[in-house]
């Protein structure tokens, strides 16, 4: 893989039959993911240039379909598309036809008549991105579906670990701790899929109401209700956003109690491996799920995660649109 002038040349990655889309990480092999990280390295170099634009996707159209609002994820994908000279059409469903009773299928068919080559889909219901693949020939990238999956977030988390952990030698034997509301978290589900596929161990930690016991059936995943046990020997510790509405529905007694038992702090990081990274998928409730001083501290890579979102998504778009040729 080399950079020639302002164009990007990337060898076609080995691809499984179902890797035409990025719906979740089950359909992507470890070698496909490593190839994607290699492409991300190239894209990251593009983003360090003065002119942060290459013509790699010129002539392609990327449609962003956000049935659920998420400005930062949509901006990250649109930046990734435009940095490769793709055209972007955007659809935000909140104010549009869905509220008029149109079916998901009819909405997609209407947009599909505009002939995008790839759709980036965010939806509040799990499986929506899977469903759309039944109705379009375009590639589909899942930008978050309910509690189900958020594969590009997991990819940028793992890529951040790979590039920022001092002395990184591989994912085999690495230990990721995820602390917080696992039940409602698509980020947790996708990170479990990705990191275990790459050979890492994952420890999930949270109160029992937010940590379904079924996760223990997943290979290389362990559960704990104590943060110090979760961080013990961890190479990376990820705090999950705690939605304030979890106080309703009897899932938690109070924010104060959650904070006292599950906040990731500088003290809880003392059990982790030296050089362990602190991560957060954002948006962050400072001093709720994570101590503010820790989020701002030297072990935090939270800003790097956001920055890496663009090259990771550039690599995803590139792989799906050009890599298939």
């Amino acid at each position: 893989m080399t950079l020639v002038g302002t164009t990007v040349q990337v060898a076609a990655a080995p691809r499984g039959p179902r890797a035409r889309h990025l719906l979740d990480l089950r359909d992507w092999s470890a070698s496909e993911i490593h190839a994607l990280f290699d492409t991300t390295d190239v894209m990251a170099q593009v983003m360090e240039r003065t002119i942060k634009k290459v013509p790699a996707l010129q002539g392609f159209t990327v449609g962003t379909l956000f049935f659920e609002n998420s400005t930062r994820t949509r901006l990250s994908f649109e930046r990734a598309a435009r940095a490769q000279s793709a055209d972007v059409i955007s659809f935000a469903a909140g104010a549009s036809s869905l509220s008029k009773g149109e079916s998901l299928r009819d909405t997609l068919l209407t947009i599909d008549a505009m002939q995008a080559d790839l759709y980036v889909v965010r939806h509040a219901a799990a499986g929506a991105a899977h469903q759309l693949t039944n109705w379009t020939n375009a590639a589909v990238v899942n930008a978050g579906d309910g509690r189900r999956a958020h594969p590009t977030q997991a990819l940028l988390d793992a890529y951040t670990f790979k590039t920022r952990f001092e002395g990184f030698t591989g994912f085999e034997g690495a230990r990721l701790a995820i602390v917080g509301d696992v039940l409602h978290s698509r980020v947790a589900r996708s990170n479990v899929e990705l990191w275990t596929k790459l050979g890492a161990d994952v420890v999930l930690c949270g109160p029992r109401t937010l940590l379904p016991s079924e996760f223990a059936e997943h290979p290389n995943v362990t559960l704990t209700h104590r943060v110090e046990e979760a961080t013990e020997g961890a190479h990376a510790v990820m705090a999950l956003r705690l939605q304030r509405e979890r106080m309703h529905g009897a899932l938690l007694p109070s924010l104060a109690e959650y904070r006292s038992r599950y906040q990731v702090t500088r003290a809880s990081m003392r059990h982790a491996r030296p050089g362990a990274l602190v991560m957060h998928p954002g948006p962050m409730n400072r001093d709720v799920e994570i101590e503010g001083a820790l989020a701002d501290g030297p072990s935090s890579v939270i800003q790097a995660q956001v920055a890496n979102g663009v090259p990771v998504r550039m690599a995803v778009l590139y792989t799906l649109l050009v890599g298939k040729r």
């Binding site: 049935f67 998901l104 009819d106 509040a124 219901a125 799990a126 499986g127 929506a128 469903q131």
Partner: peptide
């Protein structure tokens, strides 16, 4: 069919 061509939650 249109009612069932919705997302799984709705």
């Amino acid at each position: 069919r249109a009612e069932k061509d919705a997302d799984v939650q709705s």
